[in-house]
């Protein structure tokens, strides 16, 4: 079997397995896994920029929140339907990605990390200031009556799981196409050696901007889906912690691998879920994990697997 066919088969099998779990899992874990898939979409968006293009952003919470509020605010205040609101969320994410990209991409390395961090922090504070519409830290819920799409009730656990799965599958498929497409190869070339990619004649700045906008849009899709499926938008999703988490998930799962973000999110979600029962200081685990990963496993779980299976995208 060719390498390409093997990779397609593997990812199709993963999706089929996740789909089948809908009829196997008890409700509690079905809810958890739906959330993991939505957060994994966010992580996959992050991974496109960090893992494939080599740009470490510390401000993706801005894009996640842009999606979340891009969906929730028009629904709450303008009575927009779910589908157009989702479109608005994607637009909001892309616009934020474009604005941040145009400014932050003038810097590199450590300065890029700090600039993105500062923009995300400004966005978080702006959500707090606009408390009259966003209700700040407290946030607001989206009523169940509004969370209907094409006659399907997203508050029903089975439908919610399938909706999360559909989004996850769609994003995975799109990214699968992208990273094997010549454009995706250029991104990897930029990660490996930007100077050389430029000498080969590629407009690396335009490619990095494209990667930032795509990454922000995918992250916004995750944020919008989170609001639509779980019915809540709050400022805590825009805080620094939500910029650090996708970095942690992607590092753990394996940066620059397609399923890595999902593996990392799944693992960390259950680890933190378990730790939160034991102590309120559950972020301690996240901190430990970050240090241990940087020290001992910079390539992540799927990076380790790919060391054996070279054909994995």
């Amino acid at each position: 079997m060719s390498r390409g066919a093997k990779a397609v088969l593997l990812h199709a099998a993963l999706l089929a397995g996740l789909l089948a779990l809908n009829w196997v899992l008890p409700d509690y874990h079905r809810g958890n896994l739906a959330r993991v898939m939505v957060l994994a979409v966010y992580a996959m968006g992050y991974n496109l920029l960090f893992g494939y293009t080599g740009l470490l952003s510390l401000g993706h919470a801005l894009f996640f929140a842009a999606g979340m509020y891009g969906l929730a605010l028009p629904m709450h205040h303008l009575g927009l339907g779910l589908v157009p609101a989702f479109g608005a969320a994607l637009l909001a994410g892309a616009a934020c990605g474009l604005a941040v990209g145009l400014l932050a991409l003038r810097t590199t390395g450590v300065a890029f990390m700090i600039v993105t961090l500062m923009f995300a922090q400004a966005g978080y504070l702006a959500i707090l200031i606009a408390g009259a519409w966003t209700r700040g830290d407290e946030g607001f819920t989206i009523p169940a009556a509004a969370r209907q799409v094409l006659g399907l009730d997203l508050t029903e656990p089975g439908v919610r799981y399938l909706a999360a799965w559909a989004l996850f599958a769609a994003v995975l498929a799109i990214l699968f196409r992208l990273v094997r497409h010549p454009a995706g190869r250029v991104l990897v070339a930029i990660r490996e050696n930007e100077e050389r990619a430029r000498l080969l004649g590629y407009d690396t700045h335009a490619m990095k901007l494209l990667a930032t906008v795509l990454s922000a849009t995918v992250a916004a899709a995750g944020g919008a889906a989170h609001a639509a499926l779980f019915g809540y938008a709050g400022a805590s999703f825009a805080a620094v912690q939500y910029s650090i988490l996708p970095l942690l998930w992607v590092l753990l799962g394996g940066a620059g691998t397609l399923v890595g973000p999902f593996v990392g999110t799944l693992f960390m979600f259950y680890l933190i879920d378990w730790a939160a029962d034991v102590t309120p200081a559950y972020m301690l685990l996240a901190g430990l994990a970050l240090i241990l990963l940087t020290l001992f496993l910079p390539q992540g779980i799927m990076g380790l697997v790919r060391g054996r299976l070279r054909w994995l995208p």
Binding site: L56, L58, L247, T279, A281, L284, A286, G287, L290, I291
Partner: peptide, 21 residues
């Protein structure tokens, strides 16, 4: 430089959360 930032973010959470405990 970049890995140090990630590692010190980890250190940040460890110190902060250990203080919380």
């Amino acid at each position: 430089p970049e890995r140090t930032i990630v590692a010190t973010i980890g250190l940040l959470y460890i110190l902060q959360q250990a203080t919380l405990m």
